[in-house]
Design a protein around this nucleic acid. Structure first.
Length: 513
RNA sequence: CGGGGAGUGGCGCAGCCUGGUAGCGCAUCUGUUUUGGGAACAGAGGGUCGCAGGUUCGAAUCCUGUCUCCCCGACCA
């Protein structure tokens, strides 16, 4: 057990933050860019993002949305229209003020004072206001509703503290924006998209989540309701992995999104917005990574199977490569999880045993090593990334017949997908504590030595305003936040652990990213 | 943005206190021997020490400023 020679030097149990950093560099996901809070996403990391994009986009289209693209620059006055929205984002805006550079007396380039913009442009932190403008133009009648749009874009939020994938100044995301006739339709849609996120997280990323409503203090600036999916990371912290907002008529009023109803009257639309981002990759790392690097769920793995021929720089390599190419073609013809199986024959020179560890760190779900003896025996040496080690601390190879590989691989990949989900779900369930009935108990629970205290499910009276602020302060002292009010929880009885009043609902509290 | 730490070949680090123009391990390249499991030996290449000023005959080393990263806080997807 302890004599396993792991592929990483950092250990999750010793230093989770250092481990997270090491996975990102060792798995070749991304690197620093030299620009504060911005990262270079490398091919393997971007390939994972493209997989997530594809699967999420399919789900968004399947629920009736069309993709659009809106400008990255938003006129300041346009952005200003919704008061709460401005207040929420003003502190983290990048602003464009000039459109030309000029050399100063020292030859240094500076913004040309003569080229100052009449009105500054803000770099979008989110696009409610500019899309609201378009909606106001596009919508005339109740027959135009619902209007269901989505865009894939980059956004910028000038964060004080950044972390690769989890919180970067620039990040990639999709933001859906919809307009509806009334509150009921819009609220229903808000929940429909939350369910899309739940399904994508659990079925595609193999990342179990809890879907629920955010408390008042955690709402998106300008929203009436904010819902989220929350995932538990291996250090017990919560990660908000997607949000869906019912915006009421706040943005409709700010942007003039009105329609003529069936009775001929003018009426404001009820709008929604919802988003998921490259943060999901951070979630995948902290859900599925282990002390040997990343483990990519097959559904989002750019390569699900990697073949490593054991080349020897000798003439017989040619026959081996031909054997591997046949194997590759045969497996490429199969289907996994409803798509063509994605397989790579890695012909890069080098010893297979050394290359193996690169792919282990990257987290390819299945590695097939093929040497001369396999060729003779008609077998392949198969390594599952989700179960790397045998009881003796050696890589746990199996040796199925090559002729069976096409029949075997798709099922194996689907099994790995499920196994990763099951492992994460079991860990989450084991780390949710129920039955805490007082603030003292909660305090004791989170002040103990337990390294991974996980989440607590408690009940509260759903305080608002100043009473909620008081609760938030108490939680803050324990570094805790209310994550959400889970959908479909059992009814409550008894009293609120914060106020002593009759309980109204269950909430999850946790430390969070 | 406050407190702390750090930036030296691709990666991880030493050198800095007590200035004298760089060193180790891994990786890379070449050769030889190996080879069914993260090869060994020999040789070689690669760094104006984050950047900009300053002190000095001389700066990785001392001083000032600045940028970036990490950890803790406040803020947030």
């Amino acid at each position: 057990m302890s004599n396993i020679r792991h592929a990483l030097t950092a250990r999750r149990a010793d230093d989770f933050a250092a481990w997270y950093q090491e996975v990102i560099s060792a798995a070749d996901l991304a690197e620093e860019s030299g620009v504060r809070g911005c990262m270079v996403i490398k091919p393997w990391g971007y390939g994972i993002w493209e997989r997530i994009q594809r699967l999420m986009d399919d789900r968004i289209k399947a629920t009736g949305h069309d993709n659009c693209y809106f400008p990255i620059f938003i006129p300041l006055s346009n952005f200003e229209r919704e008061a709460e929205h401005v207040e929420g984002f003003a502190k983290e805006m990048a602003v464009v003020t000039h459109h030309r550079l000029i050399a100063d007396e020292n030859g240094k380039l500076i913004p040309d004072p003569a080229a100052k913009l009449e009105e500054p442009l803000v770099v979008r932190p989110t696009s409610e206001t500019i899309i609201g403008d378009a909606m106001a133009r596009w919508i005339q009648s109740w027959r135009d509703l619902p209007l269901l749009t989505n865009q894939w874009a980059n956004v910028v939020r000038w964060e004080m503290r950044t972390r690769m994938f989890l919180r970067t100044s620039e990040f990639l995301w999709q933001e859906g924006h919809t307009a509806h006739e009334n509150a009921a339709d819009a609220k229903e849609h808000t929940l429909r998209m939350l369910e899309v996120y739940r399904a994508c997280a659990e079925d595609d990323l193999a990342m179990p989540v809890i879907a629920g409503e955010k408390p008042e203090n955690e709402r998106f600036p300008g929203a009436v309701e904010t819902w989220s999916i929350e995932a538990m990371m291996q250090d017990g912290k919560a990660l908000q992995a997607g949000t869906s907002h019912y915006l009421g008529t706040n943005f409709a009023q700010a942007s003039g999104i009105q329609y003529q109803n069936r009775e001929g009257g003018q009426q404001y639309c009820h709008t929604t917005s919802w988003g998921t981002s490259t943060r999901l990759i951070g979630g995948v790392i902290m859900t599925h990574g282990d002390d040997d690097g990343l483990r990519v769920p097959p559904a989002i793995a750019p390569h699900q199977v990697v073949i490593l021929p054991m080349l020897r720089d000798k003439p017989e390599d040619e026959a081996l490569l031909a054997y591997c190419e046949d194997l590759r073609a045969a497996i490429a013809g199969t289907s996994t999880l409803g798509e063509k199986t994605r397989i790579l024959l890695d012909k890069k020179p080098g010893k297979a045993a050394a290359k193996r560890w690169d792919w282990v760190r990257k987290g390819a779900p299945i590695i097939l090593e093929v040497g001369g003896r396999d060729m003779e025996n008609g077998t392949v040496s198969l390594l599952r990334r989700d179960r790397l080690w045998d009881a003796n601390g050696k890589p746990d190879f199996s040796a199925p017949a090559a002729s069976d590989a096409t029949g075997l691989i798709p099922g194996l990949l689907e099994e790995i997908q499920q196994a990763l989900y099951n492992e994460a779900a079991a860990r989450r369930d084991a780390n949710i504590t129920r039955g805490i009935t007082s603030l003292d108990e909660l305090s004791a629970f989170y002040s103990g030595d337990a390294k991974y205290p996980g989440w607590a499910e408690v009940q509260w009276s759903k305080p608002t305003g100043a009473a909620l602020d008081a609760v938030v302060e108490k939680l803050k002292a324990l570094k805790l936040t209310v994550r959400n009010v889970p959908i479909g929880a059992e009814p409550v009885s008894g009293t609120c652990i914060f106020t002593g009043e009759p309980a109204a609902e269950r909430i999850y509290v946790a430390r969070a990213y």
